[in-house]
Amino acid sequence: MINTAVSIKNVKKTYGEVEALHNINVDVSEGELFGFIGPDGAGKTSLFRILVTLLLPTEGAASIFDMDVVKDFKKLRRILGYMPGRFSLYQDLTVEENLNFFATTFGTTIKENYYLIESIYKQIEPFKKRRAGALSGGMKQKLALSCALIHKPRLLVLDEPTTGVDAVSRSEFWDMLGNLKKMGITVVVSTPYMDEAGLCDRVALIQKGRLLSVDTPQNIMNGYDEDLWAVRSKNIYKLIEDLRQLEEVSSAFPFGEYVHVSTPPDRINQKMIENLLEKKGHDTVEVKKIGATIEDCFMKLMKN
């Protein structure tokens, strides 16, 4: 039997007139790597702050390993690791002093749980006498993760750890999360990068305080309910305009070097799209049927 790590029931959060979270319901199982995927302003940070007992929900309830985030906040804080979106370590303490501070606060030592952070901390250990404020972005991120882990939390909550981080460091960071999962730590992470959804066991797509979908990335992609085509021609911007004028087309959006074109199921085939575009003066047209990415699904759900 798999235990529930996080249970969120009808959680609502309002700030004055603004409704940041609208009736959120999600369960995360123990040992899962669970992602909240959505843009800025979706409500990810509000939800995470509620989970880590730093913010009260306006309505509803949330519990972590059966402990209530409001009533049992003191007990919960001992088993939670939290890495906020903004760098929140002590800038004027050194790398080592920061880590030691967090270990001591939780009544443990660096030595005791070193095995958990070893692969991450090793990369910044040569700079352990440097003040945290003087570290590069990537190093700060590794230190923050080490500090969030040093008390061996059962649940690790990471708020946009990869925002503004380059593609190489992002992929390294996800490798680290995969390793933590293997060590049995439940990980809840948020990101605005849709392509990172595929690295999670399950994801919740979130937009304007509402969940659009909660499932495995594969199920979400399989659930795309229209035909999808990748189309390419020389003049990509004329191509988009022309595609949007076709009555068979529900949407046309650039995706890298292709345009993704969504059409109602079985309404049109490859040859027909090619012919329609050739009539509009596109000569070297390439059309292929494709499966949806998470970003295609997100955009479709946003419009509904």
Partner: peptide
């Protein structure tokens, strides 16, 4: 980094 954090539709409108 003008499009950092915006939703995927707005990101494309921006482009």
């Amino acid at each position: 980094e003008p499009t950092s954090g915006v939703d995927p539709i707005t990101r494309r409108q921006f482009w």
